[in-house]
């Protein structure tokens, strides 16, 4: 099954254009006309990387690796420097299972996806987009509204369910989120649904009682379907700085995370935190959010992502 036929690399490029424009013009300006790779140049590149939220450690590592590499390299032209950095960055993203959940969906019915994250990251919007995509792929989707805490969270998800044309199991504010997850699983089983998406309340990773609640939701889900959840997606706001790393770490302590979804990459935020989390947490990025429309979710592809960051003359359409 090949999902996301709608993937449009122009859109990915648009979404990242601010990032790319900034990095590329800067790197181009920086490198053009310089035959030699000097320390000042590397410092400028460091600035570009750090202002992209890549983080001090990863930036230093990438620069160091590039420096070592170019020491034996005769060609220190602009293109070669960019290539070297690109390669280093891709390495950080590439080493993990980036297999799409679509390859596994045939084997499980229902295929269960739990969506978690801190407040305001964009979980509900992302679920709307995911539901739409699965529906478009011809799958029968059920959403469970297990954010029973935030005012009108259920209503918000209801609007998205309607837009995507999928069923939603609703909840009332203050009810037990585990109970909602439990009901959703049962109904999905009875109705023979292909995919179950469970929305959860935003929770800061420092609130231990809420993190415990998450464990409970997970446990209850596995009572209905013993393998559930198949996926746990952690949604991260692309604007988030270094705290995203701790978020990923803390959420992983209570539940396995199978993928990251980085949202709000249609602004000037660079989403550079992706590199850090992937290399340190060994968790793959699965999707990126590039807008508020129902189509604005893109499958994450390391090569395209890095290319879109660095290529000023367009992203190569992939086959």
């Amino acid at each position: 099954m090949n999902l996301f036929k709608n993937i449009n690399f122009d859109k990915l490029k648009d979404g990242l254009s601010k990032t790319r424009d900034k990095i590329v013009t800067k790197i181009n300006e920086t490198i053009t006309g310089k035959a030699k790779l000097d320390e000042e140049l590397l410092e400028e590149i460091e600035e570009i990387l750090i202002t992209s939220d890549i983080g001090f450690d990863v930036a230093s590592k990438v620069i160091e690796n590039t420096r070592v590499r170019l020491r034996v390299e005769k060609d220190r032209s602009k293109l070669n420097v960019i290539d070297a950095i690109k390669e280093e960055l891709e390495k950080l993203l590439n080493s993990y299972d980036t297999n799409s959940e679509f390859n596994r969906m045939d084997k499980f019915k229902p295929y269960v996806i739990l969506v978690i994250g801190v407040n305001g990251a964009g979980k509900t919007t992302t679920i709307g987009k995911l539901a739409h995509n699965y529906k478009q792929a011809g799958l029968n989707v059920i959403i469970g509204s297990a954010d029973t805490f935030r005012a009108a969270a259920n209503e918000q998800l209801e609007v998205w369910a309607k837009r995507a044309g999928v069923e939603i199991i609703q909840s009332t504010t203050g009810s037990d989120p585990s109970a909602v997850a439990f009901d959703t699983m049962n109904i999905a089983k009875k109705k023979n649904a292909d995919v179950v998406l469970i929305d959860t309340a935003g929770r800061l990773h420092t609130k231990s009682n809420l993190m415990e609640e998450l464990k409970k939701i997970k446990k209850v889900m596995s009572k209905v379907v013993d393998y559930a959840p198949n996926e746990t997606f952690l949604v991260l706001d692309g604007n988030t700085g270094q705290n995203a790393l701790i978020q990923a770490e803390k959420f992983r302590e209570v539940t396995d995370i199978t993928g990251l979804i980085i949202t709000k990459l249609d602004g000037t935020a660079k989403g550079g935190v992706v590199f850090q989390i992937c290399s340190q947490q060994k968790v793959p990025v699965k999707y990126i959010g590039v807008g508020e429309g129902i189509d604005d979710l893109q499958t994450f592809d390391a090569q395209s992502f890095v290319s879109a960051l660095f290529s000023s003359d367009g992203v190569q359409q992939q086959g």
């Binding site: 202002t51 604007n239 270094q242």
Partner: peptide, 12 residues
């Protein structure tokens, strides 16, 4: 503004 915001806070 979200206190977890990273480098881009200056731009927004």
């Amino acid at each position: 503004v979200d206190s977890m915001t990273g480098q881009d806070a200056v731009n927004s």
